[in-house]
Design a binder for these strands. Structure first.
Lengths: 220, 220
DNA sequence: GTCTATAAGAAGATAGAC
DNA sequence: GTCTATCTTCTTATAGAC
């Protein structure tokens, strides 16, 4: 396929334009396939068929299958960084987790990819194990930092460092577990259930009833 | 399925003794392999190698790979029934979840199997999907029943049916999420973290501080 | 850059010997 | 009951044409 469709203005006639777009297509397709079938069972052929090329084109672009997985994880990390809003701190960080959940619900593949790779990473020699472990460490560390900040600002009652660590882990556990339930049964109210549970955590931390502001619409 | 009846006293010299024992060995090995690699990626060859037979022997016993999975799930269900202690009701049921967690921690393969199959069952046509969905439905229904019983006995404050459903789902979500964290990082205090979170739920339900009795030793 | 063709191997499953 | 041998299909990866 020569693909000599010289596009008009925007597309420069530079030599690597199509290759870059093709790479993006492949990474997006690979994300879907790995999310659905896992890394081991998700085949290069299926990805290639989705994109409309042959498996040889994939190994050409990414060296081998693990190289493609690395590209998928790198993109995941990059996208997560972009969604990160640095202005939110302290207890507001946890309230903002509902927006994360809403985003995940609208992008089901993200949850599937995390869960599938986590399950596979149960094996010590899985290529994504370090990434998954590191990502969890980072998320928990961030949560701990924000809850400590809230405590130091006097917004909480009776939380020592150990309790903070446990509470943060429990919040993310509840979040992950509800996402798992939603994957298996999309009929459940994911946001509502988490909001309910989150209010419970906040009430315990602050020692007073907590009213959650409604979810901002259009979080897309 | 033939499902030969259990041999009465000592090993009768009946003709099927070795076959039955061999079946058990295969199912146990398959549970381990499916837990580690998933159903799709866990191969008959690996299971056969573990047991010390050829893949042909496996298909001979169970028809095909799905038949072997069915046997694994059936055994899982049977074992779960045996651990079920029918005397525990109401709020005590939730306190008893810590014992379940302790058992799971001592039998890591159980958690791996559930998580791996859940992740795979994300695909609508996975052979274990109905089983996993049904199992979750059953667990949630049981929890709802016990929490309602506690409410009707006047042990809780201000819980309508919808809140009960949400609370029960959140408890199991926290449990599953902590188990996932423990699989990825066995260094965390699984029982302690869950006990802490569980106390929070119980305090919210009963409206008063809740002191959890220590975990019974030797839950094996 | 993507293709066809192909290598080298592992998968599930079957047939028939013992 | 379990074996060996074999079938078909699918896997990742490479070589070379265009």
């Amino acid at each position: 396929m020569t693909d000599a469709t010289a596009p008009s203005a925007a597309a420069q006639r530079g030599p690597y334009q199509n290759g870059i777009r093709r790479r993006q297509e492949i990474v997006e397709s690979a994300s879907r396939v790995f999310a659905s079938y896992g890394f081991t069972s998700g085949s290069l052929r299926r990805i290639a068929d989705e994109v409309g090329v042959t498996p040889a084109a994939l190994t050409r672009h990414f060296g081998n299958k693990e190289g493609l997985l690395s590209a998928v994880l790198a993109k995941w990390d990059r996208d997560a960084q972009l969604r990160n809003t640095p202005g939110i701190r302290g207890l507001d960080y946890f309230i903002g987790l509902r927006d994360t959940l809403a985003y995940n619900q609208a992008n089901r593949g993200l949850i599937e990819l995390f869960l599938t790779l986590s399950a596979e990473s149960t094996n010590a020699d899985h290529p994504a194990r370090d990434f998954i472990q590191g990502r969890y460490r980072h998320v928990v560390a961030t949560g701990i930092q924000h809850l400590r900040e809230a405590r130091d600002a006097g917004e909480t009652v009776g939380l020592d460092d150990e309790a903070i660590s446990t509470e943060v882990r429990s919040v993310f556990a509840t979040m992950d577990g509800l996402q798992l339930q939603w994957l298996l049964n999309p009929g459940i109210d994911l946001i509502g259930s988490f909001s309910h549970a989150l209010a419970g955590y906040l009430e315990r931390w602050t020692g007073r009833p907590y009213v959650l502001p409604p979810l901002a619409a259009g979080t897309d």
